[in-house]
Nucleic acid binder design. Structure first.
Length: 203
DNA sequence: TCTTCGATTGTCT
DNA sequence: GACAATCGAAGAA
């Protein structure tokens, strides 16, 4: 596959979070473990936008947990929830404004043997089709919170991938925020590729 | 295929 | 003390 291996730089993330969420679809999430390259194409992402967004962790303001979201764009915001799951986000917008994109699913491309060993007994289609699953599959934990995603040799980074036309990207309300009041609960801030295995058949 | 429910702990009120 | 940006097992249909 003739992939462009260029790493996304801070200016990519330093834009409105909805723009970044849309453009992250089709990009390549890369994780380096012991010199081994593990990667996949992003097929699902959600935007969380500022203190006024009541679904966003930053709704409560600046706390030790949300500190990363207020920092410079292009960093990883990794947090722990439900007593057992890690979630990966990319910090967006300008420094001081809390916004992030939750990476919800990827299509594994490289390092599938590693991923398989991290997801024993599960079919390939269930390896990375959820935010906690992909963190488990790529060994993403709180130790990566605040990590710079923009360095060419970063442990965790995002590179150019494949263009996905709008016709193949669906917009829906975000997942798992049922107790959040309107209008936030229904904002169509989730981007997901329809039938990713077909869209990326050549990848 | 679907719906329901338990796991398990950090964070904030 | 409540609840969480979830997952996967189990049971019903």
């Amino acid at each position: 596959m003739p992939a462009d291996k260029s790493v996304l730089k801070a200016f990519f993330y330093e834009r409105p979070v909805l723009t970044v969420a849309r453009e992250l679809i089709g990009k390549r999430l890369v994780r380096m473990v012991d010199g081994q390259r593990i990667s996949g194409l992003i097929v699902e992402a959600e935007a969380y936008d500022g203190e006024t967004d009541l679904a966003c962790h930053a709704r409560a303001g600046r706390t030790p947990r949300t500190e990363t979201m207020y920092g410079p764009p292009g960093r990883a915001y990794v947090y722990f929830t439900y007593g057992m799951h890690w979630m990966l986000n990319c910090v967006c917008a300008h420094q001081g404004y809390p916004a992030a994109v939750l990476i919800r699913a990827i299509l594994p491309l490289e390092g599938t043997a590693f991923i398989s060993s991290r997801r024993p007994g599960r079919p390939a289609k269930d390896w990375c089709n959820g935010p906690a699953k992909l963190c488990q599959a790529l060994e993403i934990t709180g130790s990566l919170n605040g990590a710079d995603l923009c360095l060419p040799d970063a442990e965790l980074r995002i590179e150019e991938g494949l263009e996905v036309p709008d016709a193949r990207v669906q917009r829906t309300p975000r997942i798992g925020i049922d107790l959040v009041p309107e209008p936030w609960r229904s904002q169509p801030w989730r981007f997901v590729v329809a039938s990713p295995e077909k869209v990326f058949a050549k990848a």
